[in-house]
Simulated assay, not measured.
Amino acid sequence: MIKLNNKLIALGASVIASTLLVTNAFAAAPSKVDSAAAGVYNPTKNALDGGVTYKRSNGSYTAYRINEQSTKGVNFGRTPTPNELKAWDADIMPDGTGLPKGSGTVDDGEALYDKDCAVCHGEFGAGGKGYPTLTGGTIDSLKNQRTCPGKDAPNRTIGSYWPQASTLIWYIRDAMPYAHPKSYSPDQMYAMTAYLLKESGVTIDGKEIEELNQDNFKKIVMPNRNGFYPNIDGPKGVENVRAFFKNPKNFGAVGTRCMTNCGKESVAKIGNEITDVVPAYSTVRDLPKVDPSKGGAVSEAQKLYEKSCAVCHKTDAMGAPAVGDKGVWADLVVKGIDKINHNAINGLGGMPPKGGAMDLSDAQVKDIVKFMVESSK
Rank of each mutant, 00 (worst) to 15 (best):
I66T: 09
R65N: 07
T53I: 06
Y54V: 11
R65Y: 09
Y64I: 14
A38H: 11
T44P: 02
Y61I: 06
N58S: 03
G50T: 02
S60G: 09
K32T: 14
T44S: 10
T23S: 07
N42W: 04
T62W: 12
L48R: 01
A29V: 05
S31H: 03
D49R: 10
V22D: 05
D49Q: 05
K32V: 07
V40N: 08
N42V: 14
N42Q: 14
N42G: 07
I66N: 09
T23P: 01
G50A: 00
G39L: 05
L48D: 01
T44N: 08
A37H: 01
G59E: 04
G50E: 02
L21W: 12
K55T: 06
L20N: 04
K45Y: 12
S57T: 15
L48H: 03
N46W: 08
Y64F: 15
L48Q: 05
L48P: 00
Y61A: 13
G39S: 07
K45V: 14
R65T: 09
P43T: 07
N67P: 02
V52M: 01
A38L: 11
P30M: 00
D34R: 01
Y61L: 12
L21V: 13
T44E: 08
N58L: 02
S57P: 01
K55A: 15
V52I: 10
Y64L: 14
T53C: 10
N46C: 08
T19W: 03
N46H: 08
A25Q: 09
A29N: 07
K32E: 12
A28D: 06
G39I: 02
R56L: 14
G51V: 02
D34M: 06
Y41T: 14
L20Y: 12
K45I: 14
A37G: 13
S35V: 03
G51M: 05
L48Y: 01
L20K: 04
N42I: 12
S31R: 09
S60R: 15
Y54Q: 11
G50W: 02
P30F: 00
G51R: 03
N67G: 06
G59C: 05
R56K: 00
S60E: 10
A47C: 02
K32S: 09
Y61G: 10
N46D: 13
S60T: 15
G50Q: 00
S60N: 13
A28Q: 13
G51F: 13
G51A: 09
N24E: 09
I66R: 03
L20G: 11
T23R: 04
A38N: 11
L21T: 12
T62S: 12
R56P: 01
A29H: 01
D34A: 05
T19N: 07
V33E: 00
L21Q: 12
L48E: 08
L48W: 01
T62I: 15
V52P: 00
T53A: 06
N67S: 06
Y61P: 04
V22R: 10
K55P: 04
S60L: 09
Y54R: 11
G59N: 00
I66G: 05
A27M: 07
K45S: 15
G51N: 07
V33K: 06
Y41R: 14
V40Q: 08
V40G: 08
Y41V: 05
N67K: 02
D49G: 13
L21E: 08
P43H: 07
I66Y: 04
E68C: 12
Y41K: 10
G50H: 03
A25I: 15
S35L: 02
